[in-house]
Design a protein around this nucleic acid. Structure first.
Lengths: 341, 341
DNA sequence: ATCCGTTGCGCAATCGTTTGCGGTTGATAA
DNA sequence: TTATCAACCGCAAACGATTGCGCAACGGAT
């Protein structure tokens, strides 16, 4: 039994398809009696509109492309929840387009968005996308787009990102304020703009307090396993910090157990702080203070902006760059605030 | 500058749209010279096919619906990676349809799949979906579907799930074999079939070894925060186990720090084991042995089955129920295997 | 009896592609 | 010279829904 079309309904009643179409959307041109009858029959025949046809006619789908560097358990699940929160009540759906950290795949993903007439695109770039490539990709895409989190320098498109430099600086200062002086840092992939900015903030905090910056005290890790290695290296080289800044949840999950494993005690021998989405720090004991990198919030903001672009006249507005700032959350290890995330 | 259509290309060359269409797909009816010329012009005009139109004509999209109870950082990111791995090379894309643990939203999501002529559906049910509702939803959907992980009893559709009972039993036996006798368990939402089966496995292991089962030693937690509470309650009531089985990563993240916080030492005072996707256990020190609930593997399996249904004659085959078994991974806490997840 | 204005519905084009079929060439065979 | 047959390409009808326009019927006003 195939799905019934508007034509089937029309034939069944001996009326024109256009009449059915109008009746179903309560067009006043159709008499009340017939209108009800049509609705009845349509329901009985379990008619539902074929959205492919509707969208072809309307020249637009209600699909939003989500182009992200990779599907990870960090950050993006929150972002997606935030986005969904905004999209769902407005009838849009999200299409996942993971790029697996490959600029090539990223380009294909964007092409997909164009060919399928998606309503708009939310994108976070891979760690290997060059600013020039990113620019040209989005430019030729010619469709509403909002960049979030992993942005590129000087992009003339709307964006929603964390105040990275400031967040890292405040985190580091928090360590300094609590009396630490030999402060180490573990950062993400050095290609990323957010890494560069967070490193800058880290350095700024040090120099503001007259503390020396030592190359030996900073490490870069592409994932949790590398973060684990970073810690081991530092221990092996006997550059033992009395405090450690970790720029992300993923790094925490690699580095934190590595610290404990090496025999160093937290926080007695080494204070820690990180930039986090908020869930992970409460899952460790002793807990970790963090600057809240609110994934859901960023997702919501980005989605709202995109909906704005889509439903307004998309061509005019100047790009807006929203920087959301991170709130410091201090975790008393005796009474952690475990949120539902 | 609007996107150019096949007609635009045709007009530019003074040929018929059908000729362009055929030329672009290397149909032998079109002469080689013209064929090349058309391709040249098409590329020059940056023509790309409008997939909406193609799909309307072809009566099928290359979109696969992913209906899951909720977007969490646990399990589903791995599942999605597994699915993508299979889908991407075949040109399918994934549409996220989170139900937020609401059966109503779940029903809407499935309706969406129907109306948009998605090629197929991968579904994991919410904890509140009744077997009858699930059955009727999928039946009336009338489209290729594979259920994974959170299934329902006696569903006449293909499914890929973990061998839950067996996994929990083996995990519990592992604790028993290492000499533990007062074994506690923290489980997920009691509505879930996987919870029931894992609880069954837990009990079976106990009874196999002649150990008593005590209601006081099992707790149910809907999320990490509740798992934290479970541990506190057990401590408060002084039902102190010498080993703890945790049925999921999410529960680990709530319970593990709670145990440490209460002063109990792992593994000296309390051995732990869990069922896990594999990443989390290595992120704790001391590490946790686990039975591997391979998200990516389940995702791959489910996707493969679905593709099979889609590309074969979908109507004939009897439903297959695949149970993947979990491998025991013992973590030497001194040298944890941190995988990239 | 004529004119006008509603009311209620059908006709047909359209969105962009695909595809069965038919028709026009030119060359080759009879 | 004519029948035959490729080789090449165009025509038009789909896919399923939407929508501007036209038009019949009817009632009321003049």
């Amino acid at each position: 039994m195939k799905r019934s079309t508007i034509k089937d309904v029309a034939n069944r009643l001996g009326v024109n398809p256009s009449t059915v179409s109008r009746a179903l959307k309560d067009h006043p041109d159709i008499g009340l009696a017939l209108r009800e009858e049509i609705k009845r029959v349509a329901a009985e025949m379990r008619y539902t509109p074929n959205q492919m046809a509707v969208q072809l006619r309307q020249r637009q789908s209600h699909l939003i492309g989500l182009v992200i560097p990779e599907i990870t358990m960090f950050f993006y699940p929150s972002v997606i929840r935030g986005i969904e929160e905004v999209l769902e009540p407005r009838g849009y759906q999200l299409v996942m387009l993971p790029s697996n950290e490959s600029p090539l795949r990223e380009a294909q993903n964007l092409r997909f968005c164009g060919e399928n007439q998606l309503a708009g695109v939310l994108i976070s770039f891979t760690r290997h996308t060059s600013p020039a490539d990113g620019l040209s990709l989005l430019t030729r895409l010619d469709m509403p787009v909002v960049v979030f989190d992993k942005s590129l320098p000087d992009l003339p498109f709307d964006s929603v990102i964390l105040e990275d430099e400031e967040a890292a600086c405040r985190a580091t200062r928090h360590l300094i304020d609590s009396g630490c002086t030999r402060i180490g840092g573990i950062f993400g992939s050095p290609n990323l703009l957010i890494t560069q900015k967070r490193l800058q903030g880290f350095r700024r905090a040090l120099s503001l307090s007259g503390l020396p910056f030592s190359e030996a005290m900073v490490r870069f890790a592409g994932d949790a396993a590398e973060a684990d290695l970073c810690v081991r290296e530092m221990i092996a080289l006997e550059v033992i910090p009395d405090a450690l800044f970790m720029m992300s949840d993923e790094i925490v999950m690699g580095a934190y157990p590595a610290i404990l494993r090496s025999g160093i005690r937290i926080p007695e021998n080494c204070s820690v702080i990180c930039i986090s989405d908020g869930f992970i720090p409460g899952c460790y004991y002793p807990g970790i203070s963090y600057l809240h990198h609110d994934g859901a919030g960023i997702g919501r903001e980005a989605a709202l902006r995109l909906i704005g672009l889509i439903e307004s006249d998309r061509s005019v507005a100047l790009p807006e760059h929203r920087m959301v700032n991170a709130e410091l959350v201090e975790l008393e290890s005796t009474n952690p605030v475990l949120k539902g995330d």
